[in-house]
Design a protein around this nucleic acid. Sequence first.
DNA 1: TCTAAAAATGTTTGCGCACACACTATATTT
DNA 2: AAATATAGTGTGTGCGCAAACATTTTTAGA
Lengths: 357, 357
Amino acid sequence: MEKNKTIRIKDIAKLSGVSVGTVDRVIHKRGKVSDVARKKVEKILKEIDYTPNLLAKTLGSNKTNRIAVLVPHPDEDPYWKLSLDSLEASKKEWQPYQMQIETHFFKLNDEESFKRVAYNVLENKPDAIISAPIFLNVALDFFKEIQRLGIPYVHFNTMINGISPLAFIGQDLYQSGQLAGSLIDLCTKSNSGTVAILHISEKVQHSVHFIEKERGFRDYFNKKQSSKMEVISIIIEGDDMKSFESKLVDAIKSNDIKGLFIPTSSGAKLTANIISKYKLPNICIVGYDLLKENIELLKSGQINFLINQNPNRQVNRGIYHLANHLLFKKETPKLELFPLEVITKHNLDSYIKSNIH
Amino acid sequence: MEKNKTIRIKDIAKLSGVSVGTVDRVIHKRGKVSDVARKKVEKILKEIDYTPNLLAKTLGSNKTNRIAVLVPHPDEDPYWKLSLDSLEASKKEWQPYQMQIETHFFKLNDEESFKRVAYNVLENKPDAIISAPIFLNVALDFFKEIQRLGIPYVHFNTMINGISPLAFIGQDLYQSGQLAGSLIDLCTKSNSGTVAILHISEKVQHSVHFIEKERGFRDYFNKKQSSKMEVISIIIEGDDMKSFESKLVDAIKSNDIKGLFIPTSSGAKLTANIISKYKLPNICIVGYDLLKENIELLKSGQINFLINQNPNRQVNRGIYHLANHLLFKKETPKLELFPLEVITKHNLDSYIKSNIH
DNA sequence: TCTAAAAATGTTTGCGCACACACTATATTT
DNA sequence: AAATATAGTGTGTGCGCAAACATTTTTAGA
């Protein structure tokens, strides 16, 4: 009863009749240990519930760990800027544990830039890497190299096949599309008409991302018997805004469009602008993420729903897993899917004010 | 450039020409130090950016901290059960830091039980307390006593006035009510009729909680010009289910009720059962929290929305703050408001599968 | 059988800090 | 003037662990 004392390696050593060095070797599977000694120690370990003092562990090993964050340059894209919004908090959080977090940016639409930065990261020999895998082809080689080097790594935002990171952090994109369908269905009072998914300036590299969302979106309406809603896609490539404008306006005018699904976070603003410019009738719009512009559009009622992908929390969570892996050898979940957060005009504030990462 | 070495007390001592003991005394304002020595040390401290190693700090002081969790008994109410669902994870998380978490349960509707358990907690002399402040009158004395003793404490779920905990963790209940209004508005296709807020077996002690929600709910419809929706309250006290049944059925049949707002998490099931029993027309229902029953009702379409209060994350977050306060002297936010999470049939899965606390 | 190498085990140090303790110099009392 | 108190300062130990180091034991080779 009284002896609620914490069990130390020293205690285990005494109990099993060996020295602390041997216990250390058994616990960490390092160095040479005879079968006899190993069994003595393992017996004791099985009997008692030894949890190492993590403070002492980290302090004793006296190592500064470095985690590399490899992401598109935040100045080029508001979505990626969002992902780094609370990175400072992460840095502060892990600083007391001698955990350094280093960011490396590559250009979103420049494969060469990715290559350069990625191999620069490798030369730096970080202890762990978290990255958003854009550029499938190039990235694959890179991640295979990481794997060869035995550096633990985590992916977020987009899942890719062919490599197995410690963890993937993101959302179920198919479900996300379905949710978008259901939300449009909800604010559209009628049961017939057309809904459209807009693909605006999407780069090939992202395609997996959007294909999944579209599949979910279409399936929602396909599977709903009572609905006679037609689903169309509107695609604009490159930066040809003029053609997009006319395409969209045409489609809306000729198709009795009831709802628009915009799977890129930065697309909602463009769309809302056009609708307002041409004074088109009110259409239900579902977009993504709490970009500054999107927040305004939601407040003013120009768009109806945002689905929150929480990119900053994805990054923080990835760092959390890596730090725990490095410091405490904790296992990470292979797959961490974030909840699909529905943001409306009426819970927007609570999301903005909430500082939970 | 090269000397990115961490600065230790030892370094400060050398720089200011005194011993580590004196530096320690200056930093912690303890013991006797001559003005000359103090100034020498303070000069150096001002010049450099000293951040103590928190691991060493905690390890060196070698103290086991205990956090007391004071909550209603989970067997009596599914909501409170939910709040403890991930407590084990919290315990495991903090165990390595010599942080013990002890739970103390009181009976939800028994003031005497609260008193007894609360003072039992005090006798135990925990290093910190997190609790859900039910029983305003009794609780007030208790928390004043805690404050007198200088024990840091955190509140969650319900905010009360007159005491100032280290942090309050919960949601903006007024906004929550507004959100509920907007959700009912959303799935109700018409602009007129009646919506009702149901107060089912609510104990007096909770009243603040529900008053705020009702205020938000009513205000939503009051402030909306285009809406001619009438808002009524249906109240049932005690456990008089029969009277509730007739009251509810009457109200629905005679009032053209379009939507129901059920501010208690366990109330949705009762209501849905009655509606199904009397084969009443489809009514939009907004409830609270991911209770097992509510999940089923949402899946089957018997209720339309749940607002997630995330009680388990509230507790975990409170423990997180207290642990950081005790271990690292970190400041906690006075007020941590959780986002108002909207759960529908179509993002439910993503919430259930997500293991983020 | 002797010896060098390898295997197995034990011992010590240091991580950065808190805190108890020891010591010196000066002031105060007897 | 000696004894004692007091302000000020420095030193040493321990927290629990990792890792380098030191020592003993066993094995293999000639």
